[in-house]
Amino acid sequence: MAVNELEVRRSSASVLGFLGGARKLPTVSKYIDTSTCIGCKACEIACQEWNDLPEVATVQAGSYQTLPDLHAGYWNLIRFNEMEHGDTLVWLMRKDQCMHCEDPGCLEACPAPGAIVQYANGIVDVNPDKCIGCAYCASGCPFNVPKFAEKTGKMQKCTLCVDRSRVGLEPACVKSCPTGCLHFGTKDDMLSLAKGRVAQLKATGFAQAAVYDPPGVGGTAVVTVLAHGDHPEWYGLPKDPQVPLGVKLWKGFLRPLGFLAVLGAVVGAFGHHLYHGNKGHVDPGPRDPDETGTAA
């Protein structure tokens, strides 16, 4: 969803790396309090409606969850997790969508210039005009978010309603939430809101309550409050998400090294020729009587 009015901070497959910086915009953020989510799925419907996404057939897998996983046409999914905690059953609901990482693995892995951008306000977005559908972004994402759309051959995911947020509106999911477990604002505001809620949870018996803002990806523009903060995996969240080591190794080391190796081969071949000249230029003989012409 390329939005030209927003300055791009970072772009995929950019030779020079960082762009932008002319405007200073605060990073926007979505606050999700998993402890007050009631699993009503209003956000799922709001997302479908605002983004004009097609209907996706639901999959019944023994819980209230709409689909087993995010989908190219379903960018917002409440995950219903049932965990046995001590002698009680905990029923955890978490709104899953793109986390809009500060250091996005998808953008890092993407080979198509401008196909994934990070706007000045921190939103990470796929530009379908530039996307080549290679799914490298899915390989770079520690949250398994970008999905391939069979119909368009492009990758699709939550845009954090960039078309709404750039004109000062909250994302559709936040607008629709009836319990107030979703909020939208600057990252700083959302973090302080989350910290306040964590303090409340701790005071009411959830000693391990925590804010999920993983430093491994530079923090995320989705700030999640977890009552069981010591067990993000109970919510289907990775404990310490990182841009995969293989992706970093490939882009940061192997590719530049490969570039130098190929360049070195070309320079080496030229150098060899300058230094050694032609092989066979001087005929060592002995020459056969019926040989005519030269080696070349």
């Binding site: 490298y136 390989s139 293989g246 992706v247 190794l249 490939w250 192997l254 590719r255 090294l257 490969g258 190796a261 190929v262 070195g264 081969a265 070309v266 080496g268 071949a269 060899h272 020729h273 050694h276 032609n278 092989k279 066979g280 230029h281 080696a295 070349a296």
Partner: peptide
């Protein structure tokens, strides 16, 4: 991705020398 990348680079380096040796280096 890494295997494809590394194999391609090693192959391209050897191709550069293959082409060089088969042309200018040895008329």
């Amino acid at each position: 991705i890494i295997v494809h990348d590394v194999t391609f680079v090693l192959f391209l380096v050897s191709i550069v020398f293959h082409i060089y040796l088969a042309t200018t280096a040895e008329p």
